[in-house]
Design a protein around this nucleic acid. Sequence first.
DNA 1: TTTTGTTAAATCGTTTGCGATATAAATATT
DNA 2: AATATTTATATCGCAAACGATTTAACAAAA
Lengths: 147, 147
Amino acid sequence: MHPELQLDNQICFRLYTAARLITQAYTPLLNQLGITYPQYLVMMVLWEQDAQPVNDIARRLVLETNTVTPLLQRMEKQGVLVRTRGKEDKRQQIVSLTEKGREMEERAFQLIPRGMGEELKACPLKLKDYLRLAEELDSIINSLKNK
Amino acid sequence: MHPELQLDNQICFRLYTAARLITQAYTPLLNQLGITYPQYLVMMVLWEQDAQPVNDIARRLVLETNTVTPLLQRMEKQGVLVRTRGKEDKRQQIVSLTEKGREMEERAFQLIPRGMGEELKACPLKLKDYLRLAEELDSIINSLKNK
DNA sequence: TTTTGTTAAATCGTTTGCGATATAAATATT
DNA sequence: AATATTTATATCGCAAACGATTTAACAAAA
């Protein structure tokens, strides 16, 4: 009836679906590392800069601490990171990689980019398309993030 | 270290973030209808074609029945739809809108498109960009869906 | 017809995501 | 200094997602 309410006209439904399917494509690869996709995001943040407080990680991932804290607790239990009280500010929990967490980076590098390339080899998009897609997504993200 | 493992180079992280933020933007609007975003997707499927078995709804949303079934159970409890056993095939649950569910369409039409336009008015993308974005997302979705 | 296999939903357990609230430490105010 | 406010995390409850398994009905094969 109302074309505005049809699923096929919804950008949001496509984003929602594409995000889920890509996450699913990551899953068999990440299983080999013993982590989930959101946990992989945390690992990338820490590989880039180790020893960060919870808040910085959450901000980087555009998530709230009530999502990140339990995630970090599970990851600490798995032994890929540790949380220690901040020295200057005792409210902070500083999150640092363990040896196991640091070692995972090289294995991820061997597995993930190659594996995801394989998963997406049926996709007709070229590098240029992905770059433009990234920009378009960034402009959506930025206009919604600061509200 | 490895640029392939940097968050800023991840299309997937952008999809994941954009999908979450857009869903969050829908939330205050959908609250006025008393439903969540995934429930809204189910409503759109049923507004387009009423009285469908669970499987058809799941397929349309690219979800599994183990996600859709509890969703439908909650929606039935809220009184927007009913589930009845299929007549020819008694394994099927036929999902149909109630009067309350049908009435919601017009309110959604008044609220959602206008409200989301408002939410995204800071976004510089034009209609043409959204159309291309939709195509790009479709090609990602299609290459991952059939696996 | 009995057996075997397939299909449609549902159930179970775990991880996310998030609104709301709580706790404790740091900072600002009086 | 004592009080009030802000900030950093954590906790709680609920709704999604999803892999794995179960149940019941249908279909195909022996």
